[in-house]
Design a protein around this nucleic acid. Sequence first.
DNA 1: CCAAAAGTGTTCTATGTACACCCATGC
DNA 2: GCATGGGTGTACATAGAACACTTTTGG
Lengths: 221, 221
Amino acid sequence: MQNQLIQMEIRVVIFSLKDSRLSVLLLPIQLERLPGLWELPGREIQPGLSLEDQAGQSIQKIVGDREFYLEQLYTYGDLDHNPEDQTISIIYFALIPSNIQIIQSKNALAPCWFPIEELPRLATNHQDILEYALRRLRYKLEYSAVGFELLPEFFSLSELQHTYELILGVKLDKRNFRRRILEAGVIEPTPQRRMGEGRPAQLYRYRDDAIAEVKARRLFP
Amino acid sequence: MQNQLIQMEIRVVIFSLKDSRLSVLLLPIQLERLPGLWELPGREIQPGLSLEDQAGQSIQKIVGDREFYLEQLYTYGDLDHNPEDQTISIIYFALIPSNIQIIQSKNALAPCWFPIEELPRLATNHQDILEYALRRLRYKLEYSAVGFELLPEFFSLSELQHTYELILGVKLDKRNFRRRILEAGVIEPTPQRRMGEGRPAQLYRYRDDAIAEVKARRLFP
DNA sequence: CCAAAAGTGTTCTATGTACACCCATGC
DNA sequence: GCATGGGTGTACATAGAACACTTTTGG
């Protein structure tokens, strides 16, 4: 049986906002002193558990038992490139609210957030995977309103707009942004308000009854 | 090592036009006399060859050594559903020009085209996979001009329009269709014309230098 | 000359884009 | 009372949708 040669792994691209920058979670590789080489978190595929749950567990191991957005990205398997490396990698990507902290486990290597413009040296094809994940994130943001998945449960429209601007890399018009995001019907106002400098902001949250995917046209620009 | 329990397979959803209907290629299952049960073509994953090439070979085995559109669809692995069925299925979908014939191989079971409205009983989750592939095909057709992948090398704009109408299930305006498909810049006119009933039609073909994905907005409808 | 399919522009409507001022709070 | 971020509507430009007749060939 030939499959014994082939390794199957799940890897996850975990995006979050750290210090107002879009960041991704990476683990250091400690393979015979490879200095400064990092990789996407993941694990060998195990029987008895769905792929999605296995991806979810890989993430919960790092950020704890919280809810997050999770979606399959792509399955990589360039088994023709290197006879020594017969690995199939099923990649998921996740969006984690910015207020969630990394769990420190003693025996594991410490994961670390990297802003996407300041990535370290990455293992094998993880650079390509990350770039693809980022394209997909931007694409999803333009067409479906998933930006709030990177924010805490309650957030203001300005916070949401800043998130979009950060990820898409463009300035958005405040009035147009608000109109469209509200028309999309994915978020709803709450009684809460946030105090700070200036006028208090109305806080919004995700609507449970919202349709998962916005069939409509592109939202942003 | 746990992976020995897990089966890894490639499956392909092959779309083509047969008798002016969108059809999909299926193989009969001959597993201890299961009558009328069909499945998507595929094979066990082997080492040494990229996943895409393995999908391509699965298709070429049936339709011969022709070019076709091929794209990864999704990776299914509900390993939690049935302890006996620990299978991960990496699904590709392909578009085959309508003039290409099935190769008859003696020792293999005969594959067969089924119009998508008249599908037979399908194995395991292949019905779901097929429905997802169809959604993705319609989606791609709306946003990027891949419809010609289902036609022979040379085709008229009317043929292309009929293809779109068939798959999307809506009537399209002739003038708007032509304007948009030409503005997309994916096809170009050729000196050839097709004679038939009525006025001869200008024939078009795919432009080699066309950009793979149309970044633009939705094309249809 | 008639049948059959190919080919061709313009008007109207909807959507997207650009833009500037008032409001509520903390200090 | 002023500095700070929150909140609001309208006019214009562009893209999409609806629409009918002329052209070229074969029989």
